[in-house]
Design a protein around this nucleic acid. Sequence first.
DNA 1: ACGCTATCGGAACACCCCGTCCGTTTAGCT
DNA 2: AGCTAAACGGACGGGGTGTTCCGATAGCGT
Lengths: 207, 207
Amino acid sequence: MTSRLTHSLRSDAQDNRERILAAARTAFAEQGLDVAMREIARRAEVGPATLYRHFPTKEALVTDVFTEQMAACTAIVDEGLADPDPWRGFCRMIERVCELHALDRGFTAAFVSAFPSAIDLAADRERALGKAAELARRAKAGGKLRPDFVLDDLIMVLMANGGIRTTSPAAAVAASRRFAALLIQGMRAEPAIPPLPPAVRLPLAAL
Amino acid sequence: MTSRLTHSLRSDAQDNRERILAAARTAFAEQGLDVAMREIARRAEVGPATLYRHFPTKEALVTDVFTEQMAACTAIVDEGLADPDPWRGFCRMIERVCELHALDRGFTAAFVSAFPSAIDLAADRERALGKAAELARRAKAGGKLRPDFVLDDLIMVLMANGGIRTTSPAAAVAASRRFAALLIQGMRAEPAIPPLPPAVRLPLAAL
DNA sequence: ACGCTATCGGAACACCCCGTCCGTTTAGCT
DNA sequence: AGCTAAACGGACGGGGTGTTCCGATAGCGT
């Protein structure tokens, strides 16, 4: 979906479009969705008007940027679904989706509070959630996932994971790993006690 | 701390001050710390200047508002500490703190820190965290809390709990209850499988 | 090489925010 | 009731945001 109608664009236009998307990706990943459009334009070394010609509104830009992240999300669920052991697939899905969200501060926001008109994003999300529900169903059938788990729990976990703020991407990954492990342990139907991933120092600014 | 120097204020001034604090409390609770000062003044039926005379900066207002919430937090930890069964005290502490945060969207932000000069808040927070650490130590000694639990995990849980967005306060409480239960289950050293609190429908805006 | 036109980008618009100034109101004491 | 100082609140400035206008630029077919 990155190369949709790009062939009908002039060479410099296409170049700018790609630089804008790249800049928006990193900006959203680092600072969340609240980055100013000007800031994105500045990073892409482009005027604000150019940005707005390629993406008529901020929402359009966000939608375009996160379409591929959503695809990555779906791929992760699919891989979990492909695992012969549904419980292991379920666990890996949760871990990897949490890590994906942890590495991109904007993605959780884009995922959860879909914009009024980001229909493609919402549709993709529903598809991914449907598959996740099937995976959960199988994991329950296997007796490893607690039967009272519901799909909304997964959304809750994603929202919660998005609330964790860290200083570096590395810390974000580590925190999300530990967080996911804690939750997976809580979701287990017949528990054992594997060790948690290492603890993470969380930034309490102005301590 | 609500009535510190209020006696030296003129009657209307004191009245306004209290209305401002009340308005700020509910506004912060409902919408988080990002409410406009003007909005708070409007809710308190007061001009912006009046608001700024009583609280020279937004940060001062936030600090004053959340001092009592912080006290409530400390009280919760103390009650947990007072429980003869440290594990039960630990669990109740987590549940109640999560609920407290769920009912006040701004509190998590104010707690996690945020402000450069909210010294009292930070100090109170450190005290509460220290007590929580002691409670965790006892719960570990009792063999019920997994030994690799660390204090940062508690902060992580609070941050995560703050990421959960709901539509109504009732839903927020229900969600935080379920969330806390899931995590407590994950923190248990020797697990059993109690049923989770009821599931919560989470708002995925637009569909 | 030329010119047509798609594309660019700085400046500008409308809006909202925080925090302040100053003329008006009002509490409270005599 | 009258006076004075304390308190009020509408209007202001500076800065930020998303978005648009229009003159300048530069790709590309001829």
